[in-house]
């Protein structure tokens, strides 16, 4: 019974902690070739953890990272649940077991947005107030 209460409290706390992208000051952007206007939180997380490499109607998708920025801290906290160091360790575990590679990584919102705009299937995140021509904004459900 105590375990059940703990699990419920944990789930409630996590739901409360979850916010939509606008509230946490970021937006999820995608190349126009991505044929959806929304993603579930799970699918977004799976794309960035590279266990989901395709979307129905789109085909191959590619996560794009921004490092050590307010946007990346907000994104990782809200959707991935890992620190930047833990996420990089995860990517390195893929690289050093042959299972994957480290996603393209940029240091600024403008560079991230520019890469997403020119790369088929690319999905990234930037600060909510970033001007990002040539990309679409995805709703996260």
């Amino acid at each position: 019974m105590r375990l059940l209460k703990f699990a419920c409290a944990l789930a409630f706390a996590t739901i409360c902690a979850a916010s939509d992208t606008a509230e946490i000051g970021i937006k999820i952007i995608a190349n126009p070739s991505v044929r959806t206007s929304s993603l579930s939180r799970d699918d977004l997380s799976r794309i960035f953890l590279m266990t989901k490499a395709s979307l129905e109607g789109t085909g191959h998708v590619e996560p794009v990272l921004e490092r050590s920025s307010p946007a990346s801290h907000a994104f990782l906290r809200a959707y991935i649940g890992r620190t930047e160091a833990a996420l990089m360790a995860y990517y390195r575990s893929l690289v050093f077991t042959g299972k994957g590679t480290i996603p393209k990584t940029f240091a600024s919102d403008s560079a991230t947005a520019a890469y997403v705009a020119r790369t088929k299937g690319a999905i990234g995140f930037v600060s909510a107030d970033t001007a990002a021509p040539g990309v679409k904004t995805l709703q996260i459900q």
Binding site: S40, R41, D42, D43, R46, T51, K52
Partner: peptide, 12 residues
């Protein structure tokens, strides 16, 4: 492989 589970993560 992996399967999404609609709101409860994924099974690998």
């Amino acid at each position: 492989g992996t399967f999404g589970t609609e709101g409860h993560g994924e099974i690998a």
